[in-house]
Design a protein around this nucleic acid. Structure first.
Lengths: 151, 151
DNA sequence: TATTGTTATACTCTATAACTATA
DNA sequence: TATAGTTATAGAGTATAACAATA
């Protein structure tokens, strides 16, 4: 097997392991991966319309309705009416939601430092540069495929 | 944001991009990600019982029944009776299944070489070592969490 | 008694299409 | 006419529990 494929497969393996690790962050909450993702992006964006969330998460508006329904029922977010557009709703984190995200950010930081615990700062820098390059190449690969598909 | 968290988030981003890239491999087939995964593992294992597939994919036996139903309906696999255990079935790739996997392996090799196209062979070696270390750390992180959860 | 696979049931995540209220 | 969100419907992926056939 080529070295390139070995790196590709290793990245796949790491992707699965990261998912397993992150599942631990919300294991004790009523959250699921998709709901956690929405909560996370909502924290990053600030109060948002469901349209904006659908665009950010790259899912349908209908899907966002369901996710927000569940998050609202569990008290992580509330829907407020938009001050200037009476069609729209602003989804906003509650205190519980904000606190939950803060705990997850803390756990992510711990996982992240464990990740590189065995590497020298020089190796960490090399790794960061390598990953930057890989991400850039992958982005252009996927963008090219998208263009072909749209034609 | 710490350097460790930057690497963690970069790995997450790469995981998503790899998923997008791989979706392209079976875009023209009747396959979905879960069915493709089963097909891929089946190719790696050779003819297997559904129990073995459930264990490998870390999924319930009931789930495997559904995936194999769909793959059999589309002609990618067939169920054969097990020669020595009349309870069991051996799921086996058809010619169509084997050929589909071969094409996907070809595309993976192309993606993989594009991945590292901008790196020197020295940088590739550094990246490989960094990823090996990260994967090992992640595995022990997840294993520790599993032990705690089981207690 | 244990194991293999299936039927029954249910929940999450996702999509498209039709509809209402508002812009 | 277009946009924000919902109702209606459907399909994929997942799980547990009960059951039949076989080991």
């Amino acid at each position: 097997m080529s070295c390139a494929v070995a790196i590709f497969d290793r990245l796949l393996q790491i992707a699965l392991l990261i998912q397993d690790d992150m599942a631990r962050y919300f294991a004790d909450t009523a959250l699921t991966p998709a709901r956690t993702h929405l909560l996370w992006e909502l924290n990053r964006l600030g109060p948002s319309t469901q349209q904006a969330l659908a665009t950010t998460l790259k899912v349908s508006p209908r899907n966002v309705t369901g996710l927000v329904d569940a998050l609202e029922a569990e008290g992580f977010v509330i829907r407020r009416s938009h001050p200037r557009d009476r069609r729209a709703l602003l989804v906003t984190l509650t205190d519980k939601g904000t606190q939950t995200i803060a705990e997850m950010e803390h756990e992510r930081a711990q996982s992240a430092s464990a990740l590189i615990a065995n590497l020298s700062s020089d190796q960490v820098e090399q790794l960061r540069q390598g990953l930057d390059s890989v991400a850039a190449q992958l982005e252009s690969l996927v963008a090219t495929a998208d263009r072909k598909r749209t034609r």
